[in-house]
């Protein structure tokens, strides 16, 4: 049956409408989780708040388990789901820049929009920074293009690279997630509380 958009069950224009609605809910959930506070987000780097890790890891394993079961029940065809190709040099560089920006600015791109919409000034400044960065990259794209598409590994998946079965990797990831959840609770109890 699915994926709905790839198979034209949901048309191209409805795709955007649905994306907008889902985006609203996503923003709402981020706000509910407290992700419009840069202190909470930055907490994961200083060890006093690991909610970011728990929320996103939970989202990831929920989506993973859901997709794998849906695939098994033939509700979605995973071979039609788009997987980004991996370009390792640009992925590493991008990850480093993103991580640095996260620590310095206290937001990741999605949460900055979320925080700006509830009136956080630091998030608005962060957004301006994002647009300056995007524009700079866009205008100087010709300089980077060779680097951006260097080291193409294709559409690789972790379990293929590790030589594991998909299901075994899923189980392992769930186990890692649960261990991480309990470990971060343990760390939080031992790090001095930060009021924010």
């Amino acid at each position: 049956m699915g994926p709905l958009v790839t198979q034209d069950i949901i048309g191209g224009n409805w795709n955007f409408v649905l994306a907008f609605i889902l985006g609203l809910f996503f923003g709402g959930v981020l706000e509910q989780a407290g992700f419009s506070s840069s202190r909470k987000l930055a907490g994961v780097f200083y060890g006093y708040d690991f909610v970011v890790l728990r929320v996103f890891f939970t989202a990831a394993i929920t989506a993973m388990v859901g997709l794998l079961f849906f695939h098994y029940f033939e509700w979605i065809d995973l071979s039609l789901v788009y997987v980004n190709p991996t370009f390792w040099p640009s992925a590493l560089t991008g990850g480093a820049i993103m991580g640095l920006g996260f620590i310095v600015g206290g937001f990741c791109p999605g949460t900055s929009v979320c925080a700006a919409s509830i009136g956080k000034i630091d998030a608005m400044v962060f957004l301006v920074g994002i647009f300056i960065g995007i524009s700079l990259f866009g205008f100087t794209y010709d300089w980077w293009v060779d680097f951006v598409f260097a080291g193409d590994l294709g559409r690789i998946k972790v379990y293929d690279s590790l030589g594991m079965r998909q299901g075994s990797f899923a189980f392992m990831l769930i186990a890692v997630a649960l261990i991480a959840f309990y470990a971060t609770r343990w760390i939080e109890k031992r790090v001095k509380k930060v009021e924010y």
């Binding site: 388990v65 695939h71 098994y72 299901g167 899923a170 189980f171 186990a175």
Partner: peptide, 15 residues
């Protein structure tokens, strides 16, 4: 979560 993961581990591959 562990239970679902265990089920996934033993499900046969499906194309």
């Amino acid at each position: 979560a562990i239970l679902l993961g265990a089920v996934l581990m033993f499900l046969p591959e499906k194309q």
